[in-house]
């Protein structure tokens, strides 16, 4: 019997199949769906969620969670925009530091890493549950964003910077390129490196991992740091696309990100799942969002539909893993 048709193999591709059916339905229902401008637009939007969700996947694989990604995204976008536009003036010292585009981006990414590392430190050093530690960071980072921006958008960031969010390279939007690189690196990390294996081992059985001599805390801090850095990358992309750092950017992005991870088949109890699954999950959510808009579904109903899809995906996944 050809393996491709066995139900077990079919289950592996279920999210791809769901995605295909979704696209098929949308192209029949709406003549705008299957157009280049729409598809590239969808891809551009999805790129941000993919970046965040890759970090989220690594964390969820260790049986953790990160609720702070949306706020970290906003803060890092604002830091990058602020530094680029205004630089830093040290009060009383008559010293002004200006930032190049690259410098501002690096500063934004480093801030994200630092916030992520802080999450990891609080979780491992004080045994704070990830849910609580990152919930605290969600509030802290949002507050810092407000302080940094004074509550107003930072706009007018220059053409070079806008290239990141709106530019094209080899016929493909730059954000899509960025997410491809992020995904490729993350797949490499999870499949080919020691850290990757430790991530799965810790999520699968933390106690056995510790007894095997794995420095569990170090691995966790690394994972939260990566997630923070990727949230910053997302923030820079959003800021660039809008040519503006919004103090309210990224609100509830953590939910879309967790949804992508879960729809992609990663178990919230850790140890099981994959980066590529999450990519599929993020695409499904993005296409669904886009389709509901094209079909003029009211925003209220959009939320209802999205929620039900998430629930359905997890129910299907549960029954699959039972059959395993």
């Amino acid at each position: 019997m050809p393996i491709a048709y066995s139900p077990k193999n079919l289950a592996k591709f279920q999210s791809l199949i769901a995605l295909f059916l979704l696209c098929l339905a949308l192209s029949i229902l709406s003549d705008k769906f299957l157009t280049f401008s729409n598809l590239w637009n969808v891809m551009r939007q999805i790129s941000v969620n993919i970046c965040i969700s890759v970090g989220m996947t690594l964390i969820v694989l260790t049986a953790g969670i990160d609720l702070s990604v949306g706020s970290v995204l906003a803060l890092c976008g604002a830091i990058t925009a602020g530094l680029l536009k205004n630089g830093i003036e040290l009060p009383g010292q008559n010293l002004f530091i200006g930032f190049t585009v690259l410098g501002a981006i690096l500063a934004g990414a480093l801030s994200g890493s630092a916030l992520g590392a802080f999450n990891g430190w609080a979780i491992t050093k004080f045994n704070v549950p990830p849910f609580v530690a990152t919930l605290a960071m969600l509030t802290v980072a949002r507050g810092l964003t407000m302080l940094w921006t004074g509550g107003f958008p930072i706009s007018g960031l220059g053409d070079t910077f806008l290239f990141i969010g709106t530019g094209w390279f080899l016929g493909i939007p730059v954000p899509v390129w960025i997410s491809i690189v992020v995904v490729a690196l993350a797949v490499f990390l999870t499949d080919k490196t020691r850290i990757g294996r430790y991530i799965y081992a810790i999520g699968g059985n933390e106690s056995a991992s510790r007894l095997s001599g794995i420095n569990v805390n170090k691995v966790k801090i690394i994972v939260y740091t990566i997630a923070g850095a990727l949230a910053a990358v997302g923030g820079i992309m959003v800021t660039s696309r809008l040519d503006s750092a919004q103090p309210n950017a990224g609100i509830s992005y953590e939910l879309d990100s967790i949804a992508a991870v879960v729809i992609g088949g990663t178990s919230l109890s850790g140890g099981r799942g994959s980066i590529l699954g999450t990519v599929q999950g993020a695409i499904i959510i993005g296409v669904l969002n886009n389709g509901l808009v094209l079909l003029n579904v009211s925003p209220f109903w959009q939320q209802v539909v999205k929620g039900l899809v998430i629930l359905l995906a997890v129910i299907i996944d549960k029954s699959n893993s039972k059959n395993e």
């Binding site: 081992a201 106690s207 007894l211």
Partner: peptide, 8 residues
């Protein structure tokens, strides 16, 4: 509990 990662 402590010896194996059963899912690996």
């Amino acid at each position: 509990k402590d010896g194996l990662v059963l899912g690996l």
